[in-house]
């Protein structure tokens, strides 16, 4: 409990760590979603050049 209190700075320290964790997780999610979207759209469109050849 004493550790959680962070010497009275808990309300500043913990939000910083939580926000950091949130930004880290969010960026993983966004990057993976972006890649999955790109992959889907690449699969959906058989290539123009490919069809010509």
């Amino acid at each position: 409990m004493q550790w959680l209190a962070m010497g009275g700075y808990a309300r500043f320290v913990w939000p910083c760590y939580l926000l950091t964790a949130a930004v880290i997780v969010l960026n993983i999610y966004l990057a993976r979603r972006d890649f999955a979207d790109a992959l889907r759209s690449a699969r959906r469109r058989p290539t123009a050049k490919g069809n010509e050849q």
């Binding site: 990057a31 790109a38 992959l39 759209s41």
Partner: peptide, 9 residues
């Protein structure tokens, strides 16, 4: 990861 997606697009 993002660059891979961008190149794909």
């Amino acid at each position: 990861t993002r660059a891979r997606g961008a190149v794909l697009r």
